[in-house]
Write a protein that binds this DNA or RNA. Sequence first.
DNA 1: TATTGTTATACTCTATAACTATA
DNA 2: TATAGTTATAGAGTATAACAATA
Lengths: 162, 162
Amino acid sequence: MSRGLEGDAAPAEAAEAVPAGLDTSFLESLIGYNARRAALYAIGVDMEVFETFGLRVVDFSVLSVLRHNPGATSRQLCQALGILPPNLVALLNGLVKRGWVERRPHPSDGRAVALHLTPAGARLTREVEATVAGLEKRASGGLTAAELRTLNRLLQKVYLGE
Amino acid sequence: MSRGLEGDAAPAEAAEAVPAGLDTSFLESLIGYNARRAALYAIGVDMEVFETFGLRVVDFSVLSVLRHNPGATSRQLCQALGILPPNLVALLNGLVKRGWVERRPHPSDGRAVALHLTPAGARLTREVEATVAGLEKRASGGLTAAELRTLNRLLQKVYLGE
DNA sequence: TATTGTTATACTCTATAACTATA
DNA sequence: TATAGTTATAGAGTATAACAATA
């Protein structure tokens, strides 16, 4: 019974939950329900960008982490993003095939592979990161900068645990 | 390309994303990333309760909405919870088979079915709701009551949109 | 003609077991 | 013996199309 950070059976976007006249106030009292709805909303906004580049959310996460951690291994990526190793393989193959990532021999561990963005991959990732960063105000439903800071801080307090 | 509120390919719990030495600071600047991690954390805490009763998150959501909206139709449930009608059928069949929900003829629309909790279903739902409500402090990573109120308010501002 | 509920089914994402090569 | 990466496959969740019954 496990769950990674990445993926959902499908990209988030439409099929929004809109109470349709029903009382959902108990669910709305739960942090998990509210956080999930907010995540779907925010990720839905960013999805437009990802799809423009033929990326899924998880592809972007991998590219972004690799951009800031050149030479990271598959295992490190899996731990950082909550992906299971078998599921990362096809994902990386896709990024390699599209010329955005390359596997290089690991400098010190013959079992491991060092993952690097290609110049094209780095350009793409920079562009998507910049676009997504510019969408944060919209993705947060129009929160002020101060509210957004507070929200991010509280969310991190939640998932960093008690 | 759509997504409901309910479900994830699996219940949330373990496989937590724990940066493992990698820099994920860009992702941590995104509301969608933080909200998703927080949702997985909070729902993971509640999962222990759900599993005790043989419920998935989505089962509990349906039961809770039915408890507060007796006589609701499938269509209303689907809209409120972001479930697609074909996927609600098996879910309801399961709840009916376990004696928690019953389908009654709709009083005014012969096409529709009025959904009601049985007495046993109502008892169960009350108990799970109470247990989950009592877990909110833990599910929010130990936030104070004031922080939790602020967080829920901001999250609702996000998904209720700009 | 439109809507409710349903069936069948395809697709995506997530999980587990087992194998290889190296440590 | 343990770990990194991989393969194959099972399992769970989400999607679309199409049908019968009723409005």
